[in-house]
């Protein structure tokens, strides 16, 4: 589904990613772990098409198509979704308005009829339970005045609504208390399926107790320095990044 080949990327002229190779197949969950500054968040932003990052070498193929020259919205409409580490607040724009416009943009892309506000309301209400969100969140401005946990749940709600093929979850677990982490993880587990790929970027092993990865990769200095199964995450938790990487 997603193939990353020798990916190099810069921001402000500084090279952050220095040759990433990664393949995620449908139905697989990959966890990217790494210390601060290793390039984890950059990787997810580059895949999603953040304009501040420049790909200098290598390629990203999504379902066989090179997406390097596509804008973020085109990638999104192909089925790539980025759950933000720091979801952005948009005062004055209601959650339901944003999600309806996004969802209809996806439907247009696939030649489907757009939903009117009432039809969309029915559709979105069916998704609220996935993240235990109150319907009143639909009328509130996007992330405006939300707590950290509410913001992350809102990201997962958007993911449920847009139903992407490839989900990039950028430190979705950071800043969550245990209850919120459980709610968010349950939501992700319900949404993931055998025809979807998941890339889970995380600093801590904690979320992997709830979402079982098929593969764990350790990112350091802009390169994947170690890959393994889920047991690698436990090893990282016990021994720390330094030791695991040294021992490779």
């Amino acid at each position: 589904m997603l193939q990353i080949k020798n990916l190099h990327a810069n921001v402000d002229g500084i090279e952050i990613l220095k040759g990433i190779n990664l393949e995620i197949k449908a139905g697989e969950v990959h966890a990217i772990m790494g210390p601060n500054g290793s390039g984890k968040s950059t990787l997810s932003k580059v895949i999603a098409g953040h304009p501040a990052y420049e790909v200098t070498e290598g390629e990203i193929l999504f379902e066989g198509t090179n997406i390097e020259d596509l804008d973020a919205d085109e990638r999104a409409r192909m089925g790539i979704f980025l759950a933000f580490q720091y979801p952005v607040e948009i005062p004055g724009v209601s959650n339901s308005m944003l999600m309806r416009q996004s969802y209809n943009a996806m439907r247009r892309e696939h030649g489907e009829e757009e939903l009117d506000p009432l039809e969309f309301d029915d559709y979105v209400r069916g998704k609220l339970d996935l993240v235990e969100m109150d319907p009143k969140f639909l009328d509130r401005s996007v992330n405006d005045g939300f707590s950290g946990g509410e913001k992350k749940r809102n990201e997962i709600l958007q993911m449920a609504v847009l139903n992407p093929k490839m989900a990039l979850l950028d430190e979705t677990d950071s800043g969550l208390d245990i209850d919120a982490l459980r709610i968010v993880s349950d939501g992700i587990n319900k949404i993931k399926s055998k025809d979807k790929g998941v890339l889970l970027v995380t600093h801590y092993q904690r979320i992997l107790n709830y979402i079982t990865p098929d593969f764990v990769h350790v990112l350091k200095g802009g390169r994947i320095v170690k890959s393994g199964g889920k047991e690698l995450a436990h090893q990282l938790e016990d021994q720390g990044y330094e030791e695991v990487v040294e021992a490779k």
Binding site: A72, D73, F81, F84, V88, Q101, S102, M106
Partner: peptide, 23 residues
Amino acid sequence: FYLRSRGLNDSETKEILTFGFAT
């Protein structure tokens, strides 16, 4: 970028942000 990553194109994004600013 947040709105673009949700599938909205450049003009839709500017529209929605302008709307939000005014409301």
